[in-house]
C-alpha cells in the first residue's frame, strides 16, 4: 500500500490503528470461544473416567494413548514459530522485506510441522480406538484440538498468501507492517491458546499416578 491519504492513515481518537484494535477485539471474542470449548472438555473429563471402549470392546485409557514426547515436541515447535513471527514483524517494521520473507517462511514451515503432528496424532488415536463417536471424551478431545488446528491452518493459509503478496511489491510501508503485525497478533494468540490446551488436556493427565482427575476407576494398571 502506498502512503496516500488513506482512510486508515487518518489519525484515530486513541492513536491505535483500526486494524490492530479490531484484531484485539476479535481475540477477546476468541477467548470466550476457546474458553467455552475448554470448559466443555474439562467438565466432561471431571465427570467421566478417562477410559473408553474401543471397537474390539477393550477398555482403554487416554493416558496410554498420549505420546507426550511427540506433543511436547510439536508444542515446542509452535512456540518457536511465535519467535519467528516476532522476528518477521520486527523485520517488516524496519522495512527489511527479505528478512521478513525468510522468517515468515519459517513460521509457515513450523506451523505445517505442528499440523502434521496433529494429523499423525489424530490418525494414531483413531487406530487405537478413540473416535469422535464412541465416547464423550473422543467428542470433546477431537473437537477442541481440531478447532485449534483449524485456527492454525487458517493462520498458515493467511501467512502463505501474505508471503506471495509480498512479491507484488504492495506489502510495504506503515500499512504493510501493520498488516503483518495484525497477522502476528493472531498467530501469537493461537499459540497461547495451545499452551492452555496442552496443559488442560495433556499435562494434567500426568499429575500423580492416575492423572490430576484420576481415572475415575478404583484400580488402574497403566
Amino acid at each position: 500500500m502506498s502512503e496516500t491519504a488513506d482512510a486508515h492513515d487518518a489519525p484515530t481518537s486513541t492513536g491505535i490503528d483500526h486494524k490492530k484494535l479490531i484484531m484485539w477485539l476479535f481475540l477477546a471474542s476468541d477467548c470466550m470461544f476457546f474458553g467455552t470449548l475448554i470448559s466443555t472438555h474439562l467438565l466432561y473429563r471431571k465427570l467421566y473416567p478417562s477410559g473408553f471402549t474401543d471397537a474390539e470392546g477393550h477398555q482403554r485409557f487416554i493416558q496410554n494413548l498420549f505420546n507426550i514426547e511427540l506433543t511436547s515436541f510439536s508444542t515446542f515447535i509452535l512456540l518457536m514459530s511465535s519467535f519467528l513471527m516476532a522476528l518477521a514483524v520486527s523485520a517488516m517494521h524496519k522495512g527489511e522485506i527479505k528478512s521478513f520473507r525468510r522468517n515468515v517462511l519459517g513460521v509457515i514451515f513450523f506451523g505445517l510441522i505442528f499440523l502434521g503432528c496433529q494429523v499423525f496424532e489424530f490418525t494414531h488415536f483413531y487406530h487405537q480406538g478413540l473416535t469422535i463417536q464412541n465416547s464423550v471424551l473422543g467428542s470433546t478431545f477431537y473437537v477442541l484440538t481440531g478447532t485449534h488446528g483449524t485456527h492454525v491452518a487458517i493462520g498458515v493459509l493467511w501467512l502463505i498468501l501474505m508471503y506471495f503478496y509480498s512479491f507484488t511489491g504492495k506489502l510495504g510501508g506503515h500499512m504493510g507492517a501493520l498488516d503483518v503485525e495484525v497477522a502476528g497478533l493472531y498467530w501469537h494468540f493461537v499459540d497461547i491458546v495451545w499452551i492452555i490446551i496442552f496443559t488442560a488436556v495433556y499435562l494434567v493427565e500426568y499429575l500423580g499416578p492416575n492423572g490430576f482427575w484420576g481415572t475415575g476407576l478404583p484400580a488402574v494398571t497403566k
Binding site: 466443555t40 463417536q133 465416547s135 464423550v136 467428542s139
Partner: peptide
C-alpha cells in the same frame, strides 16, 4: 459426536 447425547453420557 456425543456432546448432548444422553445414551452415550452426554449431558
Amino acid at each position: 459426536a456425543n456432546f448432548f447425547n444422553p445414551s452415550a453420557g452426554g449431558q
